[in-house]
């Protein structure tokens, strides 16, 4: 870890002032400190925002507002989330461990960085870590890498689970700007594709601080979060799917699907949702959904399997979520 200046902010203004001066906000720290120890992240200053009042899960009309500092554990244990947004609780519980979720926060989890092996090895070229240095995952061992939306500059994946569920739920990220304003960004638009600037994981601008994530009114329907991984717990997703599907009289009334492990961002393809709506579930329909989802998918060698794995997992999820079995 490089030396840094440490300051604690007690309110949002104070935090914003310090971040505008270049300090990195630290909350749970479970990802940032991991990266700082490896000197992948080398901030000169940290601002500890743990005592900024951004906690709490509060209803706002039909919506539910999750404070940026609400821990993953608290979020997954919240009665309203368990009842009305089970896909979110399930996704959170699929990630990491109780210890990590007790520290990891809602905002921090959204901002967690890729687990790309080459991003983690500071001796290797990596455009995300060091823009312009190249991508050593291309042509290397890329089992956990992207098959959708990658670029020549970067094939890293977003590693999280929570944001995949938030994408399916079409939640919104609430951001305090450096100028003291608030702006809202749909989670579906919060993370970026790598394009030619993979150093930017998301659309946060310098000095901006996430203040909350807002869930829309409970969508109803059946919620499923499926995570395929190498060991049964404490492993990142090879492929994951969040699905919220409501049936009406044997047909799909609404569908929202999001995918983890496939891209630089939690993947949402509205064409897939649209294809399903109004249709009677069938294997042929599920195959069509997979065709659409994976149209243009490209493997990079060791991750080729993700394409058939996404297809098969999608079928499992759609069978489950549209089936009669409760």
């Amino acid at each position: 870890m490089k030396p840094f200046e440490y300051n604690r902010a007690n309110d949002l203004d104070h935090a914003a002032r310090l971040t505008s001066d270049g300090a990195r906000p630290i909350a749970g720290g479970t990802n940032l400190l991991d990266l700082m120890k490896l000197e992948i992240e080398t901030p000169d200053a940290l601002v500890d925002i743990n005592r900024v009042p951004l906690g709490g899960i509060e209803p706002d009309g039909d919506e539910l507002r999750i404070g940026a500092l609400v821990t993953n554990s608290a979020c997954a244990a919240d009665e309203r989330i368990r009842r009305d947004y089970p896909v979110l609780a399930r996704a959170i519980l699929a990630g990491a461990t109780f210890q990590l979720r007790n520290k990891a926060t809602t905002a921090g989890n959204l901002c967690q960085r890729t687990r790309c092996y080459y991003f983690y090895n500071t001796e290797m070229p990596c455009n995300k870590r060091e823009p312009g240095s190249g991508c050593s995952a291309i042509g290397g061992f890329n089992r956990i890498h992207a098959v959708l939306g990658a670029s020549d500059a970067c094939i890293a994946t977003y590693p999280g689970d929570m944001a995949v569920a938030l994408c399916a739920l079409n939640a919104t990220v609430e951001i305090a700007t450096a100028e003291g304003h608030t702006r809202s960004v749909p989670v579906r638009a919060f993370h970026r594709l790598p394009d030619d600037a993979p150093e930017r994981d998301n659309v946060l601008e310098p000095g901006e601080v996430i203040t909350a994530v807002v869930l829309p009114a409970p969508p109803g329907g059946k919620h499923v979060y499926r995570k395929v991984r190498d060991r049964s717990s404490y492993a990142f997703a090879l492929v994951s799917i969040a699905a919220v599907v409501r049936m009406d009289g044997g047909a799909i009334a609404s569908a929202a699907l999001a995918f983890g492990g496939l891209a630089h961002k939690p993947w949402h393809d509205e064409r897939v949702d649209a294809l399903l709506v109004g249709e009677v579930p069938s294997d042929a329909l599920f195959d069509k959904a997979a065709d659409l989802l994976l149209d243009g998918a490209q493997g990079h060698g060791t991750n080729d399997f993700k394409i058939p794995m996404a297809r098969r997992t999608l079928k499992a999820v759609l069978r489950e979520v549209t089936g009669d079995a409760e």
């Binding site: 749970g28 990590l100 520290k103």
Partner: peptide, 8 residues
């Protein structure tokens, strides 16, 4: 419970 290695 937390991982004491990942907090300052």
């Amino acid at each position: 419970r937390i991982n004491s290695c990942l907090t300052l």
